[in-house]
Computed example of a mutant assay.
Amino acid sequence: MADLRSFDKMPLLNAGAVLLLGGEESWRERLAQALLRDPRSFQVQIHMAPGLPLPTDPHRPRFDLLVLFISLHSPAGLTEALRDLSRMDPHFLLGRVCFVAAAGGARRPRALEEEAVRRLADTHCSPLLFLHTDSEEDVRCVARRLLQLLSVCAGLVPGVSALSLASFTWSSTGN
């Protein structure tokens, strides 16, 4: 049985909930702080976890957007993302998942090729953003992009559904 399902919880009013999964904890923290600092017209709830399954919590909200971090410095990053994806209801994936390929530290060698992460995102028809954690401007830019995606996934943009996020896929890979 899947850990995350599409309609197991009610949506929040004028709010969006995002789950940041995987990657290094410091990267998730920096992105979460940037998400909270950026001005927006709706409330944002941010939850973080190293991976699935999540602990059972009856007060946990419905997640409108799931962000999967994949570290380009570790070959295990792709394996962990695939494991987390297997724990989700396939219907949840449609328009609610975004991949963030993260790299930081100029001296750290990359263990994963960007093309492998692109193929994963294309396979799941999901947006892919690249994050260079050494650049504060890049962290802010990715946070703004995630807030735009979250507003669509939470149903806060009239006339646009989360399923239309596939049209953003090609424009986000060039970030």
Rank of each mutant, 00 (worst) to 15 (best):
1 M>A: 10
1 M>Q: 06
2 A>R: 07
2 A>F: 14
6 S>V: 12
6 S>M: 09
7 F>H: 15
9 K>R: 15
10 M>L: 14
12 L>N: 12
14 N>D: 13
15 A>D: 07
16 G>M: 11
19 L>V: 06
19 L>W: 03
20 L>A: 04
21 L>A: 02
21 L>S: 11
22 G>F: 05
22 G>C: 11
22 G>Q: 09
26 S>W: 11
27 W>H: 14
28 R>F: 00
29 E>D: 15
30 R>I: 00
31 L>A: 00
35 L>S: 06
36 L>E: 15
36 L>Y: 10
37 R>N: 13
38 D>I: 01
38 D>H: 11
38 D>T: 11
39 P>S: 07
39 P>H: 07
45 Q>T: 10
45 Q>N: 09
46 I>K: 06
47 H>V: 11
48 M>K: 10
52 L>W: 05
54 L>N: 09
55 P>A: 08
56 T>Y: 07
58 P>E: 15
58 P>F: 07
60 R>Y: 00
61 P>S: 06
62 R>Q: 10
62 R>L: 10
63 F>T: 14
64 D>S: 06
65 L>T: 14
65 L>V: 02
66 L>M: 07
66 L>S: 07
68 L>M: 11
69 F>N: 13
70 I>G: 01
70 I>Y: 07
71 S>F: 03
72 L>Y: 02
73 H>M: 08
73 H>T: 13
75 P>E: 11
75 P>F: 01
75 P>W: 05
78 L>P: 12
78 L>D: 10
81 A>E: 10
86 S>W: 03
87 R>H: 08
88 M>N: 03
88 M>Q: 12
89 D>L: 02
93 L>R: 11
93 L>V: 12
93 L>M: 11
93 L>D: 02
96 R>E: 08
96 R>D: 02
97 V>F: 04
100 V>L: 08
100 V>D: 05
103 A>H: 08
104 G>P: 10
106 A>C: 03
107 R>H: 05
107 R>Q: 12
110 R>E: 09
112 L>G: 03
113 E>K: 09
114 E>A: 15
115 E>D: 12
115 E>R: 07
117 V>M: 00
117 V>P: 15
119 R>M: 02
119 R>I: 00
123 T>K: 05
125 C>N: 04
126 S>M: 01
126 S>R: 04
126 S>V: 00
127 P>S: 08
127 P>H: 06
128 L>R: 06
128 L>V: 00
128 L>Q: 01
130 F>E: 07
130 F>A: 04
130 F>D: 01
132 H>A: 14
132 H>K: 13
134 D>M: 09
134 D>S: 14
136 E>T: 08
136 E>W: 06
138 D>R: 14
139 V>I: 15
140 R>K: 13
140 R>G: 09
141 C>D: 08
143 A>C: 06
143 A>F: 04
143 A>P: 08
145 R>L: 14
145 R>G: 12
145 R>Y: 05
147 L>M: 07
147 L>I: 02
150 L>D: 04
150 L>C: 05
151 S>D: 05
152 V>Y: 05
152 V>K: 06
154 A>K: 04
154 A>E: 05
156 L>S: 08
156 L>D: 05
156 L>Y: 06
157 V>A: 02
159 G>Y: 05
160 V>R: 12
161 S>A: 07
162 A>C: 13
163 L>R: 12
165 L>G: 04
168 F>R: 08
168 F>I: 03
169 T>G: 13
171 S>A: 13
175 N>H: 15
